[in-house]
């Protein structure tokens, strides 16, 4: 793509990502409604889709309040960090054979580093609010991210080994014969769980945990700043879905239909799956979360890595 084309695409991507995130909020509520035998927002516009606009207007017009007892600079900075980090993560996602902002040869690592940056947002928000619930939320978030990041990276190493590259384009290309979800089903499983935890969505929303911590790290947030957190969370959800599709379900690959459409369909299904998780699974206790991460997921990821390495070596020997 030309430089101008890239810029235009980048802009479109930002708008699409943000718009998509907004739409997902509505879609999630409707879907939850269906699964919980009720309607969800169905009043405003066709199928209630304008609820998104209404929510937006509400959030935009709310009093933009900074608590006088907070660390003001950090308090204002925190919500922007998550949005920026998540949007940057989108740059490496290949939406089609030629549809990407940049093809880094360390694309996967870039994605991992961007999701890791998002934790600062939550952490700083918790710290700057100067509120005990927020602080507890921030602490939980830090511990959760640190724990789950470890095997999130490890779980992807199998994919990297099989494709032999960190470039996401290469990884997709490597799946022409077989999606990595078959050989790397353990990796997929571990990455799925780590992904949910990274985007701290239910059932792993311990930093928020409204039943115990009021609203966790964003207790003191309202209006647009609160909206930024929400935006960040849904961007994260879409980003993780994109990555899952790219890494395990063959990205844009598919017969008959245009590549972008394939990609979107796959991402849509993964998002639905995430919403199903939210609808079905209760939140674990904090110690359960930790023990799951360190006692089961980490060994599982290592096991997957070793087995993949052995098989990859063996196949290399043959080849």
């Amino acid at each position: 793509m030309s430089e101008l084309g890239t810029m235009v695409f980048g802009l479109v991507l930002i708008l699409a990502a943000v718009g998509g995130a907004a739409l997902v909020t509505w879609f999630e509520r409707r879907l939850l409604g269906i699964w919980q035998d009720r309607y969800g927002p169905n009043r405003l516009g066709p199928f209630g889709v304008l609820q998104v606009a209404a929510d937006m207007i509400k959030l935009l017009t709310k009093h933009d309040w900074v608590p006088p007892f907070s660390d003001k600079m950090v308090f204002i900075f925190a919500p922007t960090a998550i949005v920026v980090a998540m949007l940057l993560g989108f740059t490496v996602v290949p939406f089609g054979p030629d549809l990407y902002v940049i093809d880094l040869n360390i694309g996967l690592l870039f994605f991992l580093s961007m999701t890791s940056l998002a934790v600062y947002s939550v952490l700083l928000a918790g710290l700057a609010s100067n509120n005990k619930y927020a602080l507890l939320g921030g602490l939980r978030s830090a511990a959760q991210m640190v724990s789950y990041e470890v095997f999130m990276g490890l779980s992807l190493m199998g994919v990297v080994m099989l494709s032999g590259s960190f470039s996401l384009l290469d990884i997709v290309e490597a799946q022409r014969d077989q999606w990595f979800c078959i050989p790397q089903f353990l990796g997929l499983y571990v990455f799925l769980i780590a992904g949910v935890a990274e985007s701290h969505r239910l059932p792993f929303d311990l930093p928020e945990a409204e039943h115990e911590l009021t609203a966790g790290f964003h207790t003191e947030y309202g209006g647009m700043k609160f909206a930024m957190f929400m935006l960040g969370e849904y961007l994260g959800l879409i980003l993780i879905s994109c990555m899952i599709v790219t890494l395990f379900f063959g990205g844009w690959l598919g017969p008959w239909l245009p590549p972008l459409l394939w990609f979107c369909i796959k991402v849509f299904i993964v998002i639905c799956f995430f919403i199903l998780l939210r609808a079905a699974i209760p939140r674990p206790r904090y110690d359960q979360l930790m023990s799951l991460g360190w006692k089961y997921m980490l060994p599982l990821a290592l096991f997957n890595l070793v087995v993949t390495a052995v098989i990859a070596l063996a196949m290399q020997g043959q080849g």
Binding site: I34, W35, R38, L276, I281
Partner: peptide, 21 residues
């Protein structure tokens, strides 16, 4: 057990909403 739960919830895609409009 969790997979079972998810399956049960998924089945609710096809049940009628209880809500009265």
């Amino acid at each position: 057990s969790q997979l079972q739960t998810m399956w049960t919830i998924l089945q609710h895609t096809f049940t009628k909403a209880e809500t009265v409009q």
